[in-house]
Amino acid sequence: MTTSSRFSEFTQETFALTRRLFIQLQRRPSTLIAGIIQPVMWLVLFGALFQNVPQGLFGSSQNYGQFLAAGVIVFTAFGGALNAGLPVMFDREFGFLNRLLVAPLTSRLSIVLASALFIATMSLVQTAAIVAMSSVLGAGLPGAAGLALVTAIVLLLVLGVTALSLGLAFALPGHIELIAVIFVTNLPLLFASTALAPLSFMPTWLQVVASLNPLSYAIEPIRHIYTHAHWSLGDVVMQTPFADITMATALLVLFGFSAIVFFSIRPLLRRSIA
């Protein structure tokens, strides 16, 4: 079999497996609907709760809704990506994954790639809805270059967290354990980031923790894009206790996070789908 034909079959397999996930979503659209309604409620309720704070209290943001928009975008994408392993876990428990593993697939990597493509698409739909709603609520709308970079940041984070979730789906014994990890992880990472408040509001120990949280390195560049019409990769977006972080540095941290996760779970995935 030639390389081109193998690639063609791999693409076809990935498309078929991705289509299966979208068919499941079409039959049960409540997942996507809830994934859009929840962050919109965060924007509306939290934005209203802090609408009377003095201007300038949250950095250069014009209002708390503008400050919050970046955090809601990132945390929504993170939450969706963290759930990426659940469909694979259910496939394991119901025996469908075993059927896939004995099927004559060109590459079983298509099983993992299909999940990543599905979650990435879901995250982009949710991000578009949040950006549109936050614009209506007064947060403003970044330019075309800014929106493109926001998309790239979301995808970079989603790929890393999706890989981590898929690794957990193969490493943990069942969906109860995976759901427990998701519940235990979600809120601590939210509050130990700059999603709801700037670093300057936090005690020193929490500043250190938030500065080590990958979510902060996705939130701050997006927030900087929202609050600065003219931005560059050399702009400082976060002042941590140990260094000033530029936008380029934040992107490198996100890329490094995704790369470390991918290479860490690669042996596990090979053993699990071999």
Rank of each mutant, 00 (worst) to 15 (best):
T127K: 04
S165Y: 01
P188G: 06
G85W: 01
T2H: 09
S60K: 14
D244C: 05
F96K: 03
P87Y: 00
F75G: 08
G174Y: 04
A218S: 10
V44R: 07
S134H: 08
I179S: 11
T3V: 15
A229D: 14
G143F: 01
F191H: 06
R19E: 14
A84G: 07
F242I: 09
V236E: 05
A192G: 09
A197W: 11
M202P: 02
W231Q: 04
A274Y: 14
L157D: 04
L68W: 01
N52H: 13
F262V: 11
V88G: 02
L101M: 07
G47H: 05
S4T: 15
L113T: 05
A210C: 07
I111S: 01
V44F: 13
M247I: 01
I37D: 09
P267H: 03
T162M: 03
G85H: 01
T185E: 13
T14L: 06
Q12N: 12
F118T: 06
T185A: 12
T127W: 03
P173W: 04
M247F: 02
E13P: 07
V237R: 13
L105H: 08
V74F: 06
F46Q: 08
F170A: 15
F90H: 13
V44K: 04
G146L: 03
T2Y: 05
L172Y: 01
R6M: 12
E220I: 07
S61C: 05
S107C: 11
F22W: 04
A114N: 02
Q126K: 08
L68C: 07
A229C: 12
I33A: 15
L190M: 09
S60N: 13
L49S: 12
I130C: 08
T3S: 14
S110Y: 00
V125P: 09
A163R: 03
L199D: 07
L117D: 04
T151R: 01
V131H: 06
R19M: 12
G174N: 14
S107F: 04
T106F: 06
